[in-house]
Amino acid sequence: MSRGGATVGSARGPAGVPIPAYRPGSSPLHAARAGATAAFCLALALTAMLYSDPLVLGAVVAAVALAGVAAGVGAEIRRAALIALPLVVLVAVINPLVYRGGDTVLVRGFEILGRPLDITLEALVAGALAGLRVGAIVMAFGLFTACVDPDELLRMFRRVSYRSALTGALATRLVPVLARDALRIGDAGRCRPRPPGRLAVARATLAGALDRAVDVAAALEVRGYSAGGRPARRHRPWSRHDLRVAGAAAAIAVAAVAFAAAGAGAVETYPRIEVAAGPPELALCAVLLVAAALPFAGRAARLGVARA
């Protein structure tokens, strides 16, 4: 008699997809209207896009982490960071391999695909900065995913582009459903005497997705989708959280644009590394951190949400 299961191991529950996901919460970022919170996250992402300065990018990462922890979605931010990590490493590694600029040669005569290649410190640093920028942007979108109610956001867009927004809603809704389908089909494959290959499982999952899509289309039809009405404009008074979050978003965006226009955060990597780290950069970092904390500041904000 064979014996299985003697091994003691950790049980796995229903496997979740390790990506940031929205969960209703009671933080100011959750309580504020979707547009305001989305603007807050996008302002942080915009800052990362505008700057290569490591100080500023570090401040953006810190601001995202600060806001995420304060909003109770630190785990989601960590997931986003883990997703970004391979991308960051990839960018950081590829840049010195494909760009030969820079005065400080670290490795000379390196050959790739028959081409001689010098690896320079400047190219390494430029790659690292590009990777840091990618990481900051991904983390900002992780905060966005974790704190912005997709239904409310899509409702907003349905007034502009009804069908596109509804398609987005369906895609959002079906991703976890299809992930569960794939897991189930994988388990069923393990129950076959001759388990199928990954390609067969992937094809079955895709076919199942098409079946699901037909079912969802039928469900939409019987809900009056083809009647084609658009949601009426909803007049919702601005709450304290709306104002704080929108204010913080505006402060971040204005500061980022203004400082960039003034030439702050300039970085030169070739031929030699020159990073600006003066008072303007420090001031911008301070603005970012203060603005990120602004939605959570104040007694009223905390109590107001707790009682909502």
């Binding site: 014996r3 299985g4 003691v8 049980a11 796995r12 393990r190 129950c191």
Partner: peptide, 15 residues
């Protein structure tokens, strides 16, 4: 079936 392993105890199968 063996799709999951017990965290304690064991499973016996004659085939």
């Amino acid at each position: 079936k063996g799709l999951a392993e017990p965290t304690r105890g064991r499973v016996e199968r004659a085939g």
